[in-house]
């Protein structure tokens, strides 16, 4: 318990260091652009692929569960739309990114710690936490909402394709379904969750990497911890935010 509380304390002190005033804006700007590509753009592919298949399987499952003729067919499109918007595009995508981006960040920062690259930055008078991590946080906060939108679009497309190709639903019915009783606020809800999750993934993983003590074994352990802790926090905040935003 005491260990847990000291960790929480250290985490907030770490954040204070990360959000200190940047030394030189032009360099931070350049770093942020770089992270937008590495952490954001390079994740678009995996999110699109998974969204596509999730949309497809949700549609097929909904179709098989609603074979009774009393359910109108367009419900399949509606079910696909809402599952994708409410849960997949934010929470499931965040869990995937925790694995991909989180482990990447913590092992990169952790390796820089054990090979003394962070010490080298400190010695030059650079605030290493801010220089290394602030651009990553900004980049993920900016780009993860884009990933969420990609997830929504590709997911629903996957649903449409699977539904029409397999013949469980006609194209008209599906399109009617995804427009039926549409609540734009769901998208806002999803984007808000995404912002929280992006911050959790980046800051927790960076924190784990930044305080690695030891060698490559510890770097490996830190990235495991980064993925586990950020996943747990994502699930926890999913419940809290859903209660706050949808009730």
């Amino acid at each position: 318990m005491i260990h847990f509380l000291t960790q929480v304390g250290r985490y907030f002190m770490f954040l204070r260091k990360v959000f200190a005033k940047p030394e030189k804006h032009s360099i931070y700007y350049r770093q942020t652009m770089r992270e937008l590509v590495y952490l954001g753009l390079y994740s678009a592919g995996i999110i699109a692929i998974i969204a596509f298949f999730m949309g497809a399987v949700i549609t097929l499952q909904t179709a098989y569960n609603t074979q009774n003729p009393i359910y109108p067919k367009y419900l399949i499109g509606l079910g696909c739309r809402d599952s994708i918007i409410l849960e997949f595009s934010s929470t499931v995508a965040a869990l995937i990114l925790a694995g991909k981006v989180g482990s990447n960040i913590s092992s990169e920062i952790g390796t820089m710690r054990v090979t003394e690259q962070i010490d080298a930055l400190e010695i030059m008078g650079v605030n290493s936490a801010s220089y290394l991590i602030l651009p990553k946080i900004i980049a993920t906060l900016l780009f993860n909402p884009v990933l969420t939108l990609i997830g929504i679009i590709v997911g629903i497309f996957g649903g449409w394709l699977a539904g029409t190709v397999s013949g469980v639903i006609t194209s008209e019915n599906f399109i009617y379904g995804i427009q039926y009783a549409f609540t734009p606020y769901y998208i806002v809800y999803s984007l808000i969750k995404t912002l929280f999750f992006a911050f959790i993934i980046t800051s927790i993983s960076a924190f784990q990497g930044y305080y690695v003590d030891g060698g490559s074994l510890e770097v490996g352990r830190a990235s495991t911890k980064a993925v586990v802790y950020s996943s747990i926090l994502i699930l926890l905040f999913n419940v809290i935010l859903t209660q706050l935003l949808l009730s």
Binding site: Q117, D119, A120
Partner: peptide
């Protein structure tokens, strides 16, 4: 005003 050479070089990968 400090330059430092680390035991493992510590170049930025």
């Amino acid at each position: 005003e400090i330059g430092m050479l680390f035991q493992g070089s510590a170049l930025f990968d």
